[in-house]
Design a protein around this nucleic acid. Sequence first.
RNA 1: GGGGCUGUAGCUCAAUGGAUAGAGCACCGACCUUCUAAGUCGAUGGUUGCGCGUUCGAGUCGCGCCAGCCCCGCCA
Length: 618
Amino acid sequence: MCLENTALVAGRHLSFSLLPIGAGDTRQYAEVKRDFQARPEEMSMRYALERFIAEIKDAILATGKVPADLIEITTPKPNIPADRTFVTFKAAKALGIDPNRLAADLAATLTLPPDSLIGEVSASGPFLNFSLHPQRLAATVLEEIMASGTAYGTLTDGAGRTVVIDYSSPNIAKRMHVGHIRSTIIGQSLVHIFRALGYRVIGDNHLGDWGTQFGIILAAMQRYGRPQSEGEAAMAELEALYTRYNAEMKDDPALEEEARRWSLALEQGDPTARALWQWCVDLTLRAAQRNYDRLGIRFDYAYGESFYEPMLPGVIEEALRSEAAFRDVDGAVVAELDKLPRFIIQRSDGGTVYMTRDIATIKFRIQEFNPSHIIYVVDARQELHFRQLFAIVRAMGYAHNVELVHVPFGVITTPDGQPLSTKKGNMVYLEALLDEAVARARALVDAKSPDLSPEERAAIAEAVGIGAVIYNDLYQDPRRNITLDWDRMLSIEGNSAAYLQYSHARCRSILRRAAEEGVGSETPDLTLLTHPSEQRLIRHLARLPEAVREAAARYAPFVIADWCYATAREFGIFFEQCPVLRAEPPALRAARIQLVAATATALQNGLALLGIKAPERM
RNA sequence: GGGGCUGUAGCUCAAUGGAUAGAGCACCGACCUUCUAAGUCGAUGGUUGCGCGUUCGAGUCGCGCCAGCCCCGCCA
């Protein structure tokens, strides 16, 4: 592997797409969603909206006019004055009646249980609209949030099941650059989201710590000496050593031979080679850890490619025995599956490849963790690789009950659409990226909040700068390419991390003041929260659990980002329209304080799912 | 040549086959002696790349085009 190659691609080693790929096909959200819907016996009915929907279904069912399997409840567009809708077209057709009439009949005959979360029911043409009961909703949702605290939004759908998430995957002896942050950030958010859904989550950093390039790296370190520095500087030195050796090797066959000897020595477990390699791995991981700590990245394991080395002969033998692959005339072991391009799992010289190690990795993960899903957060350019990988493991008889998912993401480009690369000299490395983001955030904080202590300003700048980097990666569908545009990334208005954090800080500010002034200790009357902006905010807060479910079903953290943003906007409107500390009567004031507290909690939870910190003050 | 992804307002993006396609940025205008103006409100802005089809209903599903990016290595 050469530097030029790897520079262009990101994560998963050759620095190389969000649809689950099962047996070579892609599936749509609606199909995938079924996998994530709570099984009836596990439905806790904990959250207000789940109960609301269940009540709607029960009420329709109780009329005896529509069988259960024809009752499908949808969420109407915001311009429709309803919270959920039964669209009657399909049911009416199946029953042979007019949709408008069915809706009208149901509206006329429905009866609601006492204390129902359903407020109003009305037919609008073929749409049967259900609205939440404002007062009961307010009381229910706020009590849920206050009772759950940091657990608000968590579910039990995944209880007893395990997912393995493969993300970040930096290369040993190389700096982490912008290409690695996407996998790292998206992967970590998916870890949070699946944990929130109740899954046991195994986060595994599949290090690029093996392969022929280590022959060159080891030979170069031996010849020119090891790097003396630490962190990214040390990585830069290693890259320089590699480049220098690689260049000199072209004119000197002896150097090439030496590199080959080191490569062989490493594979055969030579103690000197192993020690030098391990030193290199440790150095890289120490450097990476500084970035991981700042980004809040935590893995459960970091089995690198090298870990799977002993399993490879067995894997190749199994592939042959199961006839998933065959030995070609020149001795290589190849596979041709599902009309995919032919690929190799053992070279004619007996060596193994990336694919071989990935097959072993799946086998190991299934044996070790018994997961329901294995999720790969890897660059879209490796889509074919994963289709081939998933095809061969199925052909080998593995993973029958395991959803193998590749979450693909697009590349990062400069604002004018140029790819970042070392060759072009416009590469941005992760440490520098984080430093720059924090420095820019610091200038903002200094300008906006000069009254805060320097220590607090530094802490806020770190949260805002890092938050901006994370949000830049999570606010949209991962499949899209993103641009490295400092102005947009560090934007503090509109759909930005800073706006979300600011909204949370405003909530906290009100709560601090309430405590300082000793107001709001009266018994709140949550049923007084009937102002349109209060109701909109409350309805939105109620949706966090379903946002978590959808984010997992789509492997899409941006669903959470969207929820956070909408929450911040609703809060902003409420903040303008409804005084809190000066509200009268006191029971309303106390209720609004609770609403603010619930908003802060829910927003903080949402941001946590993205891996973004929520400062108390900004 | 084969395959994949993307195409929605000037720009960046949303929209579970459903009702009038929504936000932010930019631009123009309004609101701070009242809880953080990193905010809020208003105005402007659309033939959802093109065509045909399926459907009671298509930005969404199918087929065919067009454009951009990507993949098709005994590299990772």
